[in-house]
């Protein structure tokens, strides 16, 4: 078998080198391309769709560079696709960030601001007297309650992963939820459907658990 090819989609937003170096750590034999070129991404065996920063800028670049069409083509070709952080958020229908931004509508649901959720604010108020305020961004290591999926293999349920985000995914189809996390409210930490796995946390920054998830991804055949 020829060595596998992993594409990390580059649309000018975010720190792709840490994703790429974590991938080469778990798949030292693999060829890793950091690219926005549709034909290279379509040629890859599996694809990582990262993203950090503001959703408006991310979506603008995704559309300008035709990354939306590339992602669509990867999904249709049944290639394993791992979306990370804003990559995951951009797969939702719409985001509340930047006064409202239309996203790729791959998954049903919206991206919401923690601090505009009344339940979150209530949890924050209740926590305040003990000095335990809920700071936004949700930044640091939190636990993820898993729903059985090959990408969780070898990772204990409720293991901690590194998060950094102010907006969260409100998934409208709960059967797609692959992991959930509690931060004032329960929110979607992972989504799975067919060949797509999306995570809100950063596996590339989540030490041994994150590397194990990436190791599982590079071996995954894209079947749930």
């Amino acid at each position: 078998m020829s060595k596998q090819h992993i594409a990390v989609i580059d649309y000018g937003m975010g720190n792709l080198h840490s994703v790429a170096s974590a991938l080469s750590k778990v798949a030292p034999e693999a060829k890793i391309s950091i690219t926005g070129e549709k034909h290279i991404i379509e040629d890859a065996d599996r694809v990582v769709f990262p993203g950090v920063g503001a959703i408006r800028d991310c979506m603008a670049e995704i559309r300008r560079l035709d990354v939306d069409k590339t992602v669509d083509s990867v999904i249709r070709a049944n290639k394993p696709l791992l979306a990370i952080c804003v990559g995951m958020q951009s797969l939702m229908r719409w985001s509340e960030e930047n006064k409202g931004v239309d996203c790729l509508d791959v998954f049903p649901g919206q991206v919401k601001f923690f601090s505009s959720n009344p339940e979150f604010l209530k949890a924050n108020d209740e926590a305040a007297p003990s000095g335990e305020r809920l700071k936004v961004p949700h930044m640091g290591w939190n636990t993820v309650k898993q729903v059985a999926h090959p990408l969780w293999q070898g990772i204990e349920d409720n293991s901690r992963f590194y998060f950094v985000h102010s907006y969260y995914v409100n998934l409208e189809q709960s059967e797609l939820m692959a992991g959930s996390t509690h931060f004032g409210i329960e929110f979607t930490a992972a989504i799975a459907r067919e060949n797509i796995f999306a995570v809100q946390f950063h596996p590339e920054k989540s030490h041994a658990n994150g590397l194990q998830l990436l190791r599982n991804f590079v071996q995954w055949n894209g079947v749930q």
């Binding site: 949700h138 640091g140 290591w141 939190n142 636990t143 409720n158 901690r160 931060f183």
Partner: peptide
């Protein structure tokens, strides 16, 4: 279980 305090 909640967000962990970080040691840096």
């Amino acid at each position: 279980m909640a967000l962990a305090k970080r040691i840096i």
